[in-house]
Write a protein that binds this DNA or RNA. Structure first.
Lengths: 142, 142
DNA sequence: TCGAACCATCACATCGATGTGAAGGTCAAG
DNA sequence: CTTGACCTTCACATCGATGTGATGGTTCGA
C-alpha cells in the first residue's frame, strides 16, 4: 500500500510516517516511481511506535528496542552487542518505573472518580467502537 | 525551604520548579523578601509531577488531576464540575492504555533479555541505592 | 489532453519541556 | 563594607514531535 492508505489505516499523518522513516524506525520499499510501498505489517508497527512515543520513549530509543520485539527472535540475536543489552536493561527499568508511576496515579484517579460517583447518580454507558490493535496509543490529549 | 534546597532534594533544576509554578502546578508561599518558600510536602509533589510528565501527560492535564490525588478527598469534592469529571474519565482511559502498551513492550523486552541471557553467563548484581519516593520518575534517557 | 488526486522533497513554523545567561536584589560571614 | 552565595524576573535558545505549505512529478479517468 502507499503512504495515504497507511496513514488512513493507522490514523497517522503522512508527515509522521515520513518522519519515522527519517528517524530509522521503519524502512518501506520504494516503487519504481519513487513512491513508498508499505505492506500490511506496517499498520501494527506504526501503532506500536506511536504507543511507545506516547508513553514517553524517544525515537532514538524506540529504534534500538524495536528489532528485539519481533518474533522470531533468533534472527536478531546477532544484534545483541553489550551496549545494546545495557541500553535495553536501562530502558526496561525506566519503563517499569513509568508503569508503576502511571498505575499509581491512575488508581488514585479511579478511586477519586468512584468516590464522586458514590454521591451522584451514574449515566448509562454507550456501545463501544472497535478495539485498537496491539500497540495502539490512546487518543491525543488536545 | 527555599528553591535551592528543593531543587537538590527533588533532583530538579530550579528552572523547572519555576516553570511548574508558572504552569499552575504548584503555588509555594513567598517570604517577605520575595523568595519562594516550600514546605516538605513539595518534595513528593515534585516527584509526582515529574513522574507524570515523564509518562507523557502535559502540564495542562496534570494541573487538572493533581488536586484530585490528595487526601483527604472530601475537601476537593467541590472542584468536581462535569467537565472536570469528563476530563478525568478520558485521562483515566488514556493512562490505562499507556500502561497496557508500556507493559506489553516492557514484557517483550524482558523476554528478549531473558532469552539472550540464557545463552551467555550472567554477572553478579551490585547492592542497590535508596528506593525512590511515591511519584519518582525514572532517570532521563539522555 | 487536462484536471484531480495522489506522491515526492524541502523548508519553515509551532508547541511543550528544558537549558542558559543577563541584570539585579538579599543576606550572612569575613 | 565587601564578597559570595543565594534569590528574583526576563528573554532567548534548544530539542523532539508535529503542522503546514510550496513546488513539482506520476497516474488515472473525463
Amino acid at each position: 500500500m502507499r503512504i495515504g492508505e497507511l496513514a488512513e489505516r493507522s490514523g497517522t499523518p503522512r508527515r509522521l510516517l515520513r518522519y519515522y522513516e527519517e528517524q530509522g524506525l521503519i524502512a518501506p520499499r520504494r516503487l519504481p516511481n519513487g513512491y513508498r510501498d508499505y505492506d500490511e505489517r506496517f499498520v501494527d508497527r506504526i501503532m506500536q511506535i506511536r504507543g511507545l512515543l506516547d508513553a514517553g520513549l524517544p525515537t532514538r530509543i524506540i529504534k534500538q528496542i524495536l528489532p528485539c520485539l519481533d518474533k522470531p527472535r533468533v534472527i536478531h540475536f546477532s544484534d545483541a552487542t553489550p551496549e545494546m543489552l545495557a541500553t535495553l536493561e536501562r530502558e526496561l527499568d525506566r519503563m517499569s518505573r513509568r508503569v508503576e508511576c502511571l498505575s499509581r496515579n491512575r488508581d488514585a484517579i479511579a478511586e477519586y472518580l468512584d468516590a464522586v460517583r458514590a454521591t451522584a447518580p451514574p449515566e448509562p454507558a454507550l456501545p463501544e467502537p472497535a478495539p485498537p490493535g496491539p500497540g495502539a496509543p490512546p487518543p491525543a490529549d488536545r
